[in-house]
Design a protein around this nucleic acid. Structure first.
Lengths: 396, 396
DNA sequence: CAGAATAATTACACAGTGTAAACATGACCG
DNA sequence: CGGTCATGTTTACACTGTGTAATTATTCTG
């Protein structure tokens, strides 16, 4: 509109610097320059800029050697973002700063079959409480993100089959003047892993993060790429057994029909959401009989088989699995390797593929969405869309 | 080394303009500006620049209306590039200009099991003839590209299991001072489709190009992305039948074991390379009996099943299949749709997925590699790595 | 051959960059 | 306790590529 020329690169370099700070939770200018491949001169200018806008702060911190850096640059912790997470069992809201601390949380039970009308009622009710809280403290939200399982499919969301245009209209109306980004839950999870986990799960570099829960889905994490370049990797509906078990998607033989929490809960007779909550060694604790245990081994074999198939299409050097298989003893999990061996080209070789397991993170919603919101804020360079040209000239 | 500051963007804008010209085979400045989203002023400057380096030419061509564009900008056809293609049956060399015309071709039979020593001998012999030809005409090669099936796998090339470092050393020695890029055959094929096919196969936008031949592999074509961002999509070794047919990769039940040319040739009793050569309606012409025909239908079903699985992981709105299935009658090919229906999430729906078939292009090697070489030249902005600072100042 | 319509070029201002020099900071040492 | 050293940080300056807008070129029309 008003149209002063703003070179693309400004927003972008700011974003690069901010993103680096988000990742490292504070860095010296020298490191910042290296990380972002900018000159120290440029970093200096940009940091000065960002500091004048109160987006970053500097804390005195001297190095133990001569002539070391003098001040640590960190993101300001006065910037508040909103994360909203819709999962199969609840809708949660969280407000926090860019450091990932949650200052406000609200969680409401939500049915896995939540329809769009119910959702809107639930959401509207939650926003009232949220607004009260923010108003009471004068908190100014700068960015919001909401994560939804299954979001982003061209073919429509198989989990919450809603009208996306309507959803966006609704959100724009309920949360006016607040930039809001929708994303897939696994993408938000990737943001959480990248930005909020103090020491990540020990995998450096590109990898597939695979979550085996209600569905079987993940995300391919490419270290060099920004989070929003990730796309969900939905492995659950790979048909691995023609005319096999019926899946909720209507097909037969999908991986999910064999390995979802629902399938596992049927095998061992424990409600799905309890399995993850019980944590490590849930099998032993439950005194699962050998038949069931063999079945679980077989199911893990299938995960390996499907995983190998997926990796043939999309090779990555490392895979991190989270979900119930992470809770089974290593001797059972080895079935995954057996499965891999029968499908992965060249067979499974720990030199070429590193496979690791991390405990499913349960109950930390909506931290993932919050991390994603932080990412969104930062990737816009901290420049709001329409926070420019404050009535500088009057139109004749 | 000499290190004058060359902003990244210069090379890049030049590349953008050149790439657009390669794609369109000539354009008016106005269109060029639109395509590349640069201003006409910038285009003007860049074109003037490129013209002074004899990389582009202008041909008078007036529009039928007043004030139309005056000159068509085209790539110079004095720039020669080299394409080298290694396939399962031969090694071919070709020299041509950026327009895609082949001025020199040499094809040598090569075994599918060619080992690296034999390859080097064969290659060295070919380069002698090539060099003779170029020397005789004073042709100055600016860029070379070589395409290899199976190239680019981290795990090593399953088709030609060679030492890549040695290959690169060898090529650097045999073709000194010539920038050479290695790539996967399907990526080169994508370059050919994008740049050399006058009217492409009628698919606009992103799609999966899948070739069913000796292997079953393809490439996901993202219209917005440059060719070298593509990665091969190897579907052939997806295990679709546990404990199924033995595949050459050592596993059982791979798609390739059921649907490769080798598998088909076993079914109908015709040598593999003849099938594609016979062209359309090869089944009728060969009076294939009903049993074999049913088998081929079943095999196509499996292609559909695997394709659905692949598309669940990596959704695209369109798929183009080339290879023997393109030669079967539509009534038989429908089995592919049946297979898709049993794996693709939401089932096959022509509104959401467009599936089309094109005849396998046989015998046009090494045009694909040549197209890729042209792309490589152009994407470097036409600026050689070390063709700068021609003794302008003497070092003290 | 003037006028209209559009294309192509050019002059100018501007923003962001890198280089290199200047300035700042703190450890170490005599 | 002040000088030296090693490094970090800022600043001055030159440079590049860009967009805007004015200027010039080209070709058809009447």
């Amino acid at each position: 509109m008003s149209g002063r020329f703003v070179p693309r690169s400004r927003r972008q370099t700011r974003a690069t610097v901010l993103e680096s700070l988000l990742r490292t939770k504070g860095a010296f200018r020298t490191d910042l320059a290296r990380e972002t491949s900018l000159t120290e001169a440029s970093v200096s200018r940009i940091v000065a800029d960002l500091r004048s806008e109160k987006l970053v702060e500097e804390r005195k911190e001297s190095a133990p050697h001569a002539g070391g850096p003098t001040a640590l640059v960190t993101l300001s912790n006065n910037i508040n973002v909103l994360g909203i997470e819709l999962s199969n069992s609840r809708l949660s809201f969280g407000v926090g700063n860019l450091g990932g601390t949650l200052d406000y949380v609200e969680r409401m039970p939500a049915s896995p079959n939540l329809d769009q009308d119910e959702f809107e009622r639930l959401f509207a009710a939650s926003t009232v409480a949220l607004r009260e809280w923010t108003d009471a403290r004068g908190v100014d939200l700068r960015q919001a993100a909401m994560s939804i399982p299954g979001y982003g499919r061209e073919a429509g969301n198989p989990i919450f089959p809603w009208d996306m245009a309507r959803l966006k209209r609704f959100l724009g109306k309920v949360l006016p003047r607040l930039p809001l980004t929708l994303t897939n839950s696994v993408v938000a999870q990737a943001a959480f892993n990248r930005y909020a986990m103090p020491s990540t799960y020990g995998v450096e570099g590109d990898h597939l993060f695979l979550f085996v829960g209600h569905g079987v889905a993940g995300v391919i994490v490419n270290e060099a790429e920004p989070i929003d370049a990730f796309s969900p990797f939905e492995m659950g509906h790979m048909v691995i057994e023609r005319d096999g078990l019926l899946c909720r998607c209507g097909h037969r033989g999908c991986l999910e029909a064999y390995t979802s929490l629902r399938a596992v809960s049927t095998i061992i007779g424990v409600p799905g959401n309890e399995i993850l909550a019980r944590g490590d060694r849930f099998l032993d604790a439950l005194e699962v009989d050998d038949v069931a245990r063999d079945m679980l081994r077989e199911r893990q074999f299938l995960i390996g088989l499907a995983l190998g198939n997926a990796l043939n299409l999309h090779p990555v050097p490392a895979v991190v699995i989270s979900g119930w298989p992470s809770l089974t003893p290593g001797s059972d999990r080895s079935a995954i390797f057996d499965g891999l061996n029968q499908s992965l080209l060249g067979g499974y070789d720990e030199g070429r593929l590193s496979l690791s397991f991390i405990a499913p993170s349960i109950g930390n919603d909506p931290k993932a969405a919050l991390s994603y919101a932080a990412y969104c804020f930062v990737s816009g360079g901290g420049l709001e869309a329409a926070r420019d040209a404050p009535a500088m000239e009057e139109t004749t």
